[in-house]
Simulated scan of single mutants.
Amino acid sequence: MSRATLLTIALLAAGPALSDTAPVGNRVEVNGMQMYYEVSGEGDPLVVLHGAYMNIPSMGAIIPKLAETHKVYALEFQGHGRTTDLDRPITYPGLADDVAVFMEAVNLPKADVFGYSMGATAGLQLAIRHPEKVDQLIAASVAYDADGWQPAFRDFIPMMTVEMFTDMPFAEDYKTLAADPEGFPALVEKLIALEKEPMAWEAEVKALKTPVLIITGDADVATLEHSVAMFRLLGGGGMGDMGAPLPASRLAVLPATSHTAVIGQVDLLAALIEGFLKGETPKGMFQ
């Protein structure tokens, strides 16, 4: 099954998590659409970007957890959740540009960014295209090249059809939030096209100055080799304890974790994210 199929089955049925920080929802015009977003918590700003076929509630408990220590801006992408769709394809550069315009619209000059799956790849493009907007990036289940996806997933992409998704029970769940309850087939068609979009951003990733925390499951949609390659592009993968400081970017591999299991490990994710954003590192023998 595709990462989108697995993701939706596992998450779209989940309701919003309880939180002491009640989110405040609003809409803002972004590139011709009415984008829905929620703000919760207090602290340094953190923009949260969801995965394909997802919305704010289906991100689960990670948003209220992060809102305990940050002012979280969680948005819903084009055609997802309560955000309207429009007559244009969904592309990673386009999603990134939407986030940049959103940040301007809510008077957010710069923020940390946490993205999952499609949201992580959009966040990566945001750091590439709009580096002045991103302080630090957390990218969970991300790839910078289409060859980095697992072979099983790459083989499955040409087999995807709209009917494959519209016949699934979660297609009905889409209607409960959607600005256009009948818009799901059009969204699926665009997301299938997104899976076929060329991705080859090695040079751009290598040129990044933005610190990046790569989070991947050891059975994720991207291969482990690809995640390690990305970490090396960002200056990681060398030996510590040799006197030189550790790189600003980091790699975290979650054990026994598939793609759809990444976002549900809330306490582990929060600990990794907080340590990264604060610049905390485990102390070695020579420190």
Rank of each mutant, 00 (worst) to 15 (best):
A100W: 13
H80M: 10
N107S: 12
R88P: 14
A105H: 08
P93K: 05
V99Y: 13
E104A: 03
H80N: 09
Y73T: 06
T91C: 04
D98P: 05
F102C: 02
Q78S: 05
L86I: 14
R82Y: 05
T83F: 10
K71Q: 15
A105G: 01
L75I: 14
P89F: 13
D97R: 06
A100E: 10
D97A: 12
F77M: 13
T83H: 07
A96I: 02
Q78F: 11
D98Y: 05
G79N: 04
R88K: 15
L95Y: 04
T84I: 01
F77Y: 14
V101D: 04
A100V: 15
K71H: 08
G79R: 03
H80S: 02
P93S: 00
M103E: 02
V72F: 07
G81H: 11
D85N: 15
A74Q: 11
I90V: 15
V99C: 07
V106Y: 04
K71C: 10
P89A: 14
D87Y: 11
P89C: 08
Y73H: 10
T91A: 07
D97G: 04
R88E: 14
A74M: 09
P109Y: 05
H70P: 12
A96V: 03
V101W: 02
G79A: 00
G94I: 04
Q78N: 12
P109L: 06
D85W: 12
T84H: 04
G94H: 13
P93T: 06
E104Y: 00
D85G: 12
D85P: 12
V106N: 05
Y73V: 05
G94E: 08
H70W: 08
D98N: 10
H80Y: 01
L86G: 13
F102K: 02
Y92S: 06
F102I: 01
A96D: 00
P109N: 05
A74E: 03
G94K: 10
M103Q: 07
E76V: 08
T91L: 08
T91N: 03
E76N: 04
D85H: 12
L95F: 01
A96H: 00
P89N: 13
V101L: 01
V101S: 09
D97V: 04
N107Q: 13
D98F: 02
N107Y: 10
T84E: 11
L108A: 00
K71W: 08
D97W: 11
R88S: 09
D97T: 07
T84V: 01
R82V: 07
R82P: 15
P109D: 03
A74N: 01
